[in-house]
Amino acid sequence: MGQVLQQEIFKFRHQQLAWLTPAILVLLMAGLAMTTHGAATSDQKFYISSAYGGFQWLTILIIVIGASCVTMEFEYGTIKQLATQVNHRWTIFVGKYVLVLGYSVLLHGVAILVTLLLKTSVGRGLHWQYIYLYHQSLLANLVTNALLDMYGGVMIIGLVFLLASCSRNSAAAIAIGIGACFMGEGVSSLLLQSFKPLLPLMKWNPFNMFFLQEEYANPSYQQNVTHLTIQQLSVGSLVWALFFVGVGAMIFSRRRI
């Protein structure tokens, strides 16, 4: 596994996308930060704690990277070479998953750092020690949001990997991944409202787990939307992530090459 991961890191750091992504993220965050100039204090707090939209942009970028990371092996025909170098093909899949998770952690770090820098110019009037949600400081909110987003990403990346393992082209996996990520919450709400008798079962649907971060920011979601506690959402998210990665690895291993 160590050798597979080393190879994946080697390949990844030689791809333009690896170096371009942080630059795109910084530009997008800076763009949003510019628009917050002169906004109300409460809005400014929200933007800062959400890394000037960085966490949302980051999710899209990670979906693109995750999907292309898997499908490129089939697109370039390199999967044949890789498969002869390992005893079990699923190790390639898991190696790639670990790489993208690691990269997600790195990007979250970048998002926090950039937020710190942007605040010094755009949100100069606000102190990091200002109390925001849960009676915690603004900085604590930013870090908590980053951690929750990273944690939620474990399931999203798993889902994208599963979709990518079924596809030879990254476009389909990217489109479905982004669709699921941004419309999944709506789909889940609709399901829970439409099939009330099935609520005890339906509340465990994977799209409901996307509400993890929102429920942290808005505890009333537990009663009105998800019908699950933060802890239950965390466990559900992890179980679904394991399921997606497991099924994805199985499909990846059995695909005809």
């Binding site: 390949k11 030689h14 791809q15 333009q16 370039y76 025909g77 390199t78 044949k80 070479q81």
Partner: peptide, 9 residues
């Protein structure tokens, strides 16, 4: 079949 090559390397 064809050489297994990453175009970016």
């Amino acid at each position: 079949e064809r050489p297994a090559i990453y175009p970016f390397l």
